[in-house]
Amino acid sequence: MQAELTDRELFLASLRAELAAFEGRYLREVGVLYAELDDWNAKIAELTAETDGSEGAKSAAAEARSQAEESYAGAHGEAAKAAEFSPSPELKKLFREVVKQIHPDYASDEADRLVRNRLMAAANLAYRRSGEAALRRILDEYKSSPESVRDEGVGADLVRVLRQIDQIVQRFAQIEAEAAELASSEIALLMAKVQTATAEDRDLLAEMKQDVQHRIGLARNEFEDQSSKLRPR
């Protein structure tokens, strides 16, 4: 049961990390272009509002501008910074070791559980960032904490063991639920498409980039067309 839990935790952590890495790449390559496109569209809408002056045109311009800001924030935010993820066998092994040692469901009491929860979150982050050194520090930190040296043998009563089993079963369900949710997220569906295309020797991200870049060019031309009409000759 312990080995299976370790497997599933590793699977979930890998899935999260892989999706975060793909999302980072997508936002850096394609997301920024959507943000640029939205900026041009907002500029066009603002120019139209200036010449037209109607309430409708003004609110369309405000709407377009807030969309552009939102896209910019999305494309340049924290998610865009996620690095590429390709875990080495050593990293995976280390993560398994961490899970085995500090999984919150093996906690002996509530204080131990709190420590383990914090370390487990740190371990997930370290794994995502391929931080072997950080994972080792987490292991060391737990081994040297007072919670880790609690007397297991004599004090382990049946009630506690049963409660642990119950927690582990619940955790399995949580893992499956989270994995299912992740797998049906927009970014996962997009990643699946890109991977399918890669298998067919197509670079879908490059195609998407090209498409949005082309639309940026059209929007820029449109903006320049409209603004040159405004300028006094």
């Binding site: 496109l37 896209s71 999305g74 494309a75 998610a79 927009e186 879908l204 998407m208 059209l218």
Partner: peptide, 28 residues
């Protein structure tokens, strides 16, 4: 304009990074 309309239709969905992924899929 046809191209711009396409650009603007897909601009309607919202929500930062998630909506950028949604847009990418819709365009695909």
């Amino acid at each position: 304009h046809a191209a711009l309309v396409l650009a603007q239709v897909t601009a309607l969905t919202r929500g930062g990074a998630k909506s950028l992924a949604t847009r990418g899929r819709a365009d695909l």
